[in-house]
């Protein structure tokens, strides 16, 4: 796999199933704005740590991002869909799937 320079770690919340991101405080947040951007090497190390929290979050994985703006942007479509919600829902249920709404939960 091509190593991206900028990455975030994502997972699914054990209780809710929704997508969460690993933060600089080494906790999980549903807000991509809180995600810590890591080099490939740091991401690999942090993933081990993230994986020790499996009673909170499952399926931790590394996702490449574009870090040029304040909130990291996933570079893969799959990861963008995980962040924003499924295409039809984005049209139909936008407020509910917006990351901010999930964060407020």
């Amino acid at each position: 796999m091509a190593k991206s320079e900028h990455n975030v770690i994502s997972g699914n919340d054990l209780l809710g199933g929704h997508v969460v991101y690993w933060t600089a405080q080494e906790t999980w947040s549903a807000d991509m704005g809180q995600a810590v951007v890591l080099s490939a090497q740091d991401a690999a190390n942090e993933l081990n740590l993230a994986n020790t929290t499996q009673n909170e979050t499952v399926g931790a994985e590394i996702n490449p991002v574009d870090a040029s703006s304040a909130i990291p942007k996933p570079t893969k479509r799959r990861d963008a869909i995980r962040l924003n919600g499924p295409s039809p829902e984005v049209m139909v249920f936008l407020p509910d799937t917006a990351p901010a709404a999930i964060a407020a939960e």
């Binding site: 699914n12 199933g17 929704h18 009673n55 499952v58 995980r82 499924p86």
Partner: peptide, 26 residues
């Protein structure tokens, strides 16, 4: 599972046997 008595690796086959998958965002 919620209390932590079962790990995810232990729980996953049990949930699949009951039709519960984990998809991309739920």
């Amino acid at each position: 599972r919620i209390s932590g008595a079962l790990t995810e690796d232990e729980f996953k086959p049990l949930r699949l046997m009951n039709g519960l998958y984990l998809q991309l965002h739920a």
